[in-house]
Nucleic acid binder design. Structure first.
Ligand SMILES: Nc1nc2c(ncn2[C@H]2C[C@H](O)[C@@H](COP(=O)(O)OP(=O)(O)OP(=O)(O)O)O2)c(=O)[nH]1
Ligand SMILES: [Mg+2]
Ligand SMILES: [Mg+2]
Length: 579
DNA sequence: GCCGTTTTCGGCCCGACTGTTTTCAGTCG
């Protein structure tokens, strides 16, 4: 079964082959389509079934026909023909760093070099020396590229996040008023995986900054370094692009460096149509700069409202901004609680209080801590006795300004959860297929846990979709965030399409450096979630979960909330205040 | 190959860095 990733790779291969043929524009068109497929929330086959392939940005008549053929037969005649024309090794050479279609084609046509191994041999034998444009340094670069391992894979955002923040903080230490440093690129957009770290600095002292960064302790290598940008490789192979611009250009540069590429291109094209020009230094009317200091100014100068970084993927956000209808996305300040707190088995009472202090800092009204039900071993969560005691005290006696403490249980079946009468709320762990049940659940069920990103395999994907539908139908929210136990932004998008609600993780129970909170929020925002799409933006009062602005909520959600409420009547007071 | 509050044809973002060049091509962000 062909996954979206397979299809995207196929289009990228076509793009490279067309590039090697010397085609113009077509390669970029295929890459644009591939990028679109990268972040699709559903399998391509679903779009094909519904006849919606052409609604995907960058997919038109020709690519849609090719995808249909590929989905049906698992093969693509067009690609097969291209591949008989151009050896596979030439594409491999083209994908080496610093080598593009022009150079790879020259190796192939002029030197009959058709693989990275052959390239190494040709270099060692001196066969390239003296050729036009291939000087000593260039050939040294080729040797380096041909000897290197294939370009490192993209890494999960949670891995790159702390390192990027540390680097940004270390740069900020030496900045003064008016100077700034921000993480940009795919990290700022909160993509699930990132190819590198992009750091923007607003300062007039670029060489000073580059010197300090290059001398950082975990810098392995400086790949390039000019007046305004530098690329370094950190320990572990993580690549970092640092760009420094004048503070007057910081806003324009932040727009540029945050991307995405497709967002930038559309923005710049729009400006052009208006007789303006956008680059990383500002917005220009002729020679004159009309914006550049802030992102707001840049968007405003081309008639757009500001667009949150997580939305900048050219998926229609620019049209919304043109009519001032960008949705107000969920923010940190909207979060009123977090039900998915966990304490490690050796957590001390102080650890608990540290978590509560963090919850207070986040201005949470309530926190839930999972203490019952089935953990990985099928046992009740273990905690030291004195921590249990502190937990019981904090739950019974809420201190002023502190979050209410609720105890929860995580269960693998509705029956086992309903049987546990000691918990304040219940979490259903996604295992196998979702339960088949009448439309009313017992009281206190709040969350579905352990539901990861959509699996690629078709029957597993079906089951995953069934869980989302189950959660949406019964008013259970699903956790969004990094890792294999939470929805990624595409999964979140799918849940919202089904009219479900998300649970954003605050990380109150983690160390301060743990990036799970901001990433969880970022994923939700990438799915264009508003506060009303996130269950834990609702306050829990003595009686019921209330939500201040339900005005634009859809009927499905209202009715499921009603169902859940009616189900609570006559049950224990503890569970009642949660339903 | 895609796309359209200027287009169904004719455009397709804009600039930095490197190596090699004596004015620019190629690659990358
Ligand atoms: N205008 C313009 N901007 C670009 C282009 N390529 C990249 N950029 C901008 C937008 C990108 O978000 C930003 C950083 O480039 P990267 O290659 O690191 O891409 P990004 O961080 O988006 O994704 P990544 O996870 O690194 O693959 O630079 C381009 O061709 N044109
Ligand atoms: Mg990047
Ligand atoms: Mg980059």
């Amino acid at each position: 079964m062909a996954s979206n990733a397979d299809a995207a790779e196929l289009l990228r291969l076509i793009a490279d082959l067309l590039d090697l043929r010397g085609e113009r524009f077509k390669p970029e068109a295929y890459r644009r389509a591939a990028r679109s497929i990268d972040t699709l929330p559903e399998p391509l086959a679903k779009y094909a079934e519904r006849g919606e392939l052409r609604a995907i940005p960058g997919i038109g008549e020709a690519i849609s026909a090719k995808l249909t053929e590929y989905l049906k037969t698992g093969r693509l005649g067009y690609l097969d023909r291209l591949q008989t024309e151009i050896p596979a090794g030439v594409v491999q050479i083209m994908r080496l760093p610093g080598i593009g279609p022009k150079t790879a084609r020259r190796f192939w046509v002029e030197f009959h070099v058709e693989s990275p191994a052959a390239l190494r041999k040709a270099i060692d034998a001196g066969r390239l020396s003296g050729a036009r444009g291939f000087g000593e340094r260039r050939i040294a670069q080729f040797r380096e590229a041909a000897g290197a391992r294939p370009a490192g894979a993209r890494i999960p955002i949670a891995e790159a996040w702390p390192r990027a923040q540390r680097l940004a903080a270390s740069i900020r230490q030496h900045l003064t008023g008016g100077e700034r440093a921000e993480v940009a690129g795919s990290l700022r957009r909160c993509r699930e995986t990132v190819g590198d770290v992009d750091l923007l600095v607003g300062s007039r002292r670029s060489s000073e900054i580059f010197d300090r960064v290059a001398n950082g302790s975990d810098v392995l290598e400086v790949l390039l370094s000019g007046d305004t940008k530098m690329t370094i490789v950190l320990e572990g192979g993580l690549q970092v692009d640092v760009r420094v611009v004048d503070p007057d250009s910081f806003g324009a540069a932040l727009v540029y460096f945050t991307g995405s590429k497709d967002h930038n291109v559309r923005l710049r094209t729009l400006a052009k149509d208006l007789g303006l020009k956008i680059n990383e230094y500002g917005v220009y009317r002729g020679e004159r700069v009309i914006a550049g200091r802030s992102e707001y100014d840049v968007y405003d100068a081309v008639g757009l409202s500001w667009i949150p970084p997580e939305m900048r993927e050219d998926r229609g956000e620019i049209d919304l901004a043109a009519t001032d209808s960008v949705p107000t996305l969920v923010e940190l300040a909207d979060l009123k609680g977090d039900l998915h707190g966990r304490l490690s088995p050796d957590a001390s009472p102080d650890d608990l209080d540290r978590a509560l202090a963090e919850a207070r800092r986040l201005r949470l009204d309530y926190v839930g801590i999972l203490v019952h039900g089935t953990d990985d071993d099928g046992h009740r969560a273990a905690l030291p006795a004195e921590t249990w005691q502190r937990l019981a005290v904090r739950r019974e006696r809420r201190r002023p300004g502190e979050a209410a403490v609720l105890l929860g249980g995580e269960f693998t079946s509705l029956a086992s959860g309903d049987a546990d009468r000691e918990v304040d709320f219940r979490v259903l762990r996604a295992q196998g297929s979702p339960p088949v049940t009448a439309d009313c659940l017992g009281p206190g069920w709040r969350l579905v846990s352990h539901l990861g990103p959509a699996p690629a395999e078709a029957t597993e994907r079906e089951r995953w979709g069934a869980w989302l539908a189950f959660a949406a139908a019964h008013g259970l929210s699903v956790e969004v965030g990094p890792g294999p136990e939470r929805l990624d932004s595409e999964g979140a998008r799918e849940l919202l399409r089904l009219r479900g609600t998300l649970h954003v993780v605050t990380g109150f129970d983690r160390t301060p450096e743990d990036p799970i909170g901001p990433i969880s929020l970022g994923f939700a925002r990438r799915a264009w979630a508003r506060a009303t799409d996130v269950q834990n933006t609702r306050r829990v009062t003595g009686g019921e979960a209330s939500s201040p602005d339900r005005g634009d909520q859809d009927a499905t959600m209202r009715s499921s909330a009603r169902r859940a409420r009616s189900a609570t009547s006559g049950r224990t007071s503890i569970t009642k205040r949660f339903s």
